[in-house]
Design a protein around this nucleic acid. Structure first.
Lengths: 210, 210
DNA sequence: AAGTTACCTGACTAAATGGTTAACAACAAT
DNA sequence: ATTGTTGTTAACCATTTAGTCAGGTAACTT
């Protein structure tokens, strides 16, 4: 067997185990919080002995960091990028759609991130904490240009972004509450489209874009 | 000394200690989560010996329940009630203003509640879990009547309430992130009014109420 | 003054937890 | 076959944690 194959094979075991562990860990961290999730509980959920978990990850904090990192990557990929030439309507629609789809597809990722921020972002490195500042500044600048050109109502662009973020993430983070209020056991396919339609409708009109 | 005075005096010690403990506990629960907050850390923050904490509260779960209950009471008091005869514009303004003020005044309460919901509301009793269903149903009914009378745009009332909740709570729960993005150390008086104005402006217009 | 109640706390314990180690198993390369 | 690498895991340990308890003090009542 070639060296490449060997790397691939061992890499597979490693990768598979890590995915199993991280998946279990993500769930445990959401359900129990950082301190409440024990290495043992993660091991149980992953159906692996505890020592095996600590063979692949030096320690608990490492597991959490890996989960967090994965979450941030997902956020980065999932958030639709917008450009100046497409106009405010398409831009807002793209952001709303991307974020709503992410919320329904990866609620746990959103929850982990939310809990981290709520608790003061103690585990986030500085670059991760300030990363979004640049993102918001850039997008806000675009919105401001559209406002200056009279292409949309004069609303504070930064707060507009907060509004879109909060409204979309809400469906992930407060899943439990929303399902209770809607008297449902689970979300269905239609819900995603309905939420996208609702938010686009009201926010676009709110921006004078109907 | 009369019996009433005795009750008052001892009651004061009890009440004072409990407030001190609950205040410390709330902060610890926010910063460290339920499992991460230790009785010792609460004791340290309250500047009391650990055994004293457990004199006033049977156990850790009891402390948490007391904190949660206090949070729910605050939510109940703080949320402005709306009525049919005032029309949709005033109603929405009242809800937004009440919730934004609460978010800026008691961010910790909002955070505790948010974390509890995110983690699946494991500590909330059934009546607390379903309490808001009735609240939302009632208010949604009002909105629907206004829609039917053509007094506001045809937007889903339930999702409208979710939108208002999420947008307002965001300023409490994601305080850390918002401050980082706005490059600020703290919120100021003006911010509250500005957020209220922004949200009323965009949401009212979104509901066809400008 | 004596008794009763509320309040306070250092010292302790049993259980849980994160992490280590040492021995072993699978397997590929030489 | 031997050697080295990777994966596996039971047993173990030091520390932390929630909660108990016994012995106190202070305040109030009679």
């Amino acid at each position: 067997m070639t060296n490449a194959n060997q790397v691939k094979k061992t890499g597979n075991i490693r990768a598979k185990s890590q995915v199993k562990i991280l998946t279990a860990a993500r769930t445990e961290f959401v359900l129990q919080g950082y301190r409440g999730a024990t290495v043992q509980s993660i091991a149980d959920r992953a159906a692996l002995p505890k020592a095996n978990i600590l063979y692949y990850f030096k320690n608990k904090e490492n597991i959490y960091h890996a989960v967090l990192e994965h979450t941030l990557e997902m956020w980065d990929e999932g958030i639709g990028d917008i450009e100046a030439d497409q106009g405010p309507k398409v831009a807002i629609e793209k952001i709303i759609e991307a974020k709503v789809r992410m919320s329904f597809k990866h609620p746990e990722a959103s929850k982990i991130y939310a809990m981290e921020i709520i608790q003061g972002a103690q585990h986030l490195k500085d670059y991760a904490r300030t990363y979004q500042r640049q993102w918001v500044r850039e997008k806000a600048k675009l919105f401001q240009q559209w406002i200056d050109k009279g292409e949309m109502a004069n609303v504070d662009p930064v707060h507009l972004i907060f509004l879109i973020w909060s409204a979309t993430q809400h469906y992930a983070d407060f899943e439990t509450q929303i399902l209770t209020i809607m008297n449902r056991a689970d979300f269905e396919e239609d819900d995603v489209e309905q939420v996208i339609a609702f938010l686009c409708d009201i926010i676009l009109r709110g921006c004078g874009l109907d």
